[in-house]
C-alpha cells in the first residue's frame, strides 16, 4: 500500500508538471495569465459566493422549515440547483450565431421551467412520503 501511494504521488506530480509545461509552451504570456485568473476566480466564486450561499440556505431552512418540508426543499435544491448552473450558457444564448440556426435551437427558459416543475413535484412527493412514514411508524424516535 505504501509503495502504491508513493507511486501514485509520483505519477500525479509528473502529470501536473507535464500539464503545466504544455500550458506554458502552447499559450503566450497574456493567455497564461488569463488561465491563472480563471483558476483563481473559479475557487473564489465557489468558496466565496456559491458555497456560503448554500450554507446560508441550509442554515435558514434548518431553522424555519419543519423537517418534512426541509426534506422536500433539499430535494429541489440538489436536483434543480446544479442543473440551473449547467443551463447558464444556453439560457443566455451567449454563443448564438446569426447565420447558424442549428445552434441553440430550443426555448431553454421553457425547458428549465418544465424541469423546475418536475423537481417541485419530486420535492412535494418526498415531503409527503416523510409525513406518511411518520404517521405509520408512530410514536417516532428520531430517525437517524
Amino acid at each position: 500500500m505504501r509503495g502504491a501511494r508513493g507511486g501514485l504521488i509520483l505519477l500525479g506530480t509528473v502529470g501536473m508538471a507535464y500539464g503545466a509545461w504544455l500550458l506554458l509552451s502552447t499559450q503566450d504570456l497574456g493567455q497564461v495569465v488569463e488561465v491563472m485568473i480563471w483558476l483563481a476566480a473559479a475557487v473564489v466564486i465557489h468558496d466565496g459566493i456559491l458555497a456560503p450561499a448554500v450554507l446560508a440556505l441550509g442554515w435558514l431552512g434548518g431553522r424555519l422549515l419543519p423537517r418534512a418540508v426541509a426534506r422536500g426543499a433539499v430535494t429541489v435544491l440538489v436536483l434543480l440547483g446544479p442543473v440551473t448552473l449547467v443551463a447558464i450558457p444556453v439560457l443566455g444564448r451567449f454563443g448564438a450565431k446569426p447565420d447558424n440556426p442549428t445552434l441553440l435551437d430550443r426555448d431553454y427558459v421553457q425547458g428549465l421551467l418544465v424541469f423546475a416543475v418536475l423537481c417541485m413535484c419530486a420535492g412535494v412527493a418526498v415531503a409527503l412520503g416523510e409525513l406518511r412514514s411518520r404517521q405509520t411508524t408512530q410514536p417516532t424516535v428520531e430517525e437517524e
Partner: peptide, 25 residues
Amino acid sequence: WGFSFRSTHYALAFVAVGALLVHIA
C-alpha cells in the same frame, strides 16, 4: 476568454488528473 480552448483544456486535464492521483494517494 482569450486563450485557446483546445490547448488549455488539454493541458489542464493533465494537471487536474495529476492532482487527483495525489489526492487519492
